[in-house]
Each structure stands twice: as C-alpha cells, then as structure tokens.
Design a protein around this nucleic acid. Structure first.
Lengths: 106, 106
DNA sequence: TAATCAATTAAAACATTGGTTAAATATATA
DNA sequence: TATATATTTAACCAATGTTTTAATTGATTA
C-alpha cells in the first residue's frame, strides 16, 4: 500500500523539514544537506525514502541531483486519509474533490 | 513538539486501522483487540501511543475502558501540516480556517 | 471474600530505523 | 587521462519500536 510508505516517510522530523524546504524551491542534494547537521549519506537516504513514497522527484542536472516536491501526492494522500477518518467535514470534502479534479493546475 | 508524536503515531498500519475503526464508533480495548490478530497487550500499547498523541481519548466504564477518537486533533494537525507544505490550495485553506473557527460543532 | 473478567505494565526477544565512515559511481574539468 | 566535486551505496553500530508471555491492577459478582 502506498499510504504506508507515505506515512512512514512523514514520521521523521528531518524528512518533514526537507519537505518544508522543498515546498519553497527546488534544491540539490548538497544544498539540502548543508542545512542539516548531518552527513550527506544520511540526507541521501532520507531523500530516497521521500522519493520512494512519491513525495519528491529528482532529476540529475550535470554533477548535481535536483530535488523537487510532489505537492499533489502529499495533499491528496493526507486529505483522503483525513476524510476517511473524519467524513464529517462536508464543505472541506467538496473542495478537496474539486481540487483533485483539476490536479494538473498546481 | 506535538506534530512529532502525531506523525509517529500515524506511522503504523495497525494504529491507522484502529483510528478507522474508532471513526465509526467508540469501542472497548477488548473489542478493538478482537479485530486484530495480535495480543491484547500489543493493542494496549498502540492505544497508549494514540492517546499520548492526543488522537484518541479513553474512559473507564466499569470493567471496560472505552476508546473514542479525537477527530479535531487529527484533522487540525494534518490540514495545518498540509498547508504549511502546500499553501497553494486557496479555497481549501479558507474552508479549513472556517472549520477551525467552529471547531466545537463536530 | 474468593473467583473471574478486562486491561495494563513488566521483562525479554526480535526487527527496524537512523546515524556514522568508507568505498563506489557519475559528471565536470585541467 | 587524471583529478576534483557531487551523490549514492555498503557495511556497521546504537537506539528505538513491536511483539510475546507472565505478572499486576481494577472492577464485578457468586
């Protein structure tokens, strides 16, 4: 199941922090690593967890590997889980469906 | 940080399953345990993780301990995280604020 | 009170996660 | 080609999480 990997990926402060950084701009692996007090290999593994979960994408650009967030996947998973647990939120749910329908506009 | 505990609590299939069960109705610890192929103590631990994270509440009722979900906490945490990472979703964000304002109506 | 049922806590075994350093791979450049 | 930089993979260790069985606590009832 994919929700498994996503929740597991989110269950880590450094990984959530990486997502927050990437939500503002795309960054190379090295740029990300430089923002943490942690070795590059450790960051590389966190990035691979995030990528396996489908929360980020990577692209090699020369020597560098650029990472970029996959917002749709994150939003869709969390909102669909939220509404599975809490189907009460009517208007919010409607908006969520609308958003999912025009996913590509992000 | 409380988001830490919440994401850690959600990073477990059995715990998410427990939340799903509790989203439909309140259940005793034993009723929950009977739905899993797992010992009662194991379930008890999962319940305590969920309760520490503030995702469920418990109340002793005679011999039994009844568990009930705390939907607001879950929804608020996940939506606020979602919008921290993805502030693009304008209308959804507005609805979320509205919902937070009338929290008690759940 | 004694016996029973429900639930949690304790202790131990086992698996998983998260970090390190060292080695390997990929690209750029002198 | 040789060297340097960026990143990932491999091997390893420490810490944490998950489960089990056994013991303990709380509440009901015969």
């Amino acid at each position: 199941m994919t929700a498994d990997r996503i929740f597991e990926a989110l269950a880590s402060q450094p990984r959530r922090k990486i997502l927050a950084y990437l939500s503002a701009q795309e960054l190379t692996a090295g740029e990300i690593a430089s923002r943490f007090d942690m070795s590059a290999p450790a960051i590389s593994r966190h990035l691979s967890v995030l990528e396996t979960a489908g929360l980020v994408n990577s692209e090699r650009r020369g020597q560098y590997v650029v990472y970029r967030i996959n917002k749709d996947n994150l939003v869709n998973t969390l909102t669909s889980f939220t509404f599975e647990i809490c189907p009460v939120a009517g208007p919010l749910k409607r908006e969520s469906r609308k958003r999912a329908a025009m996913k590509q506009s992000t």
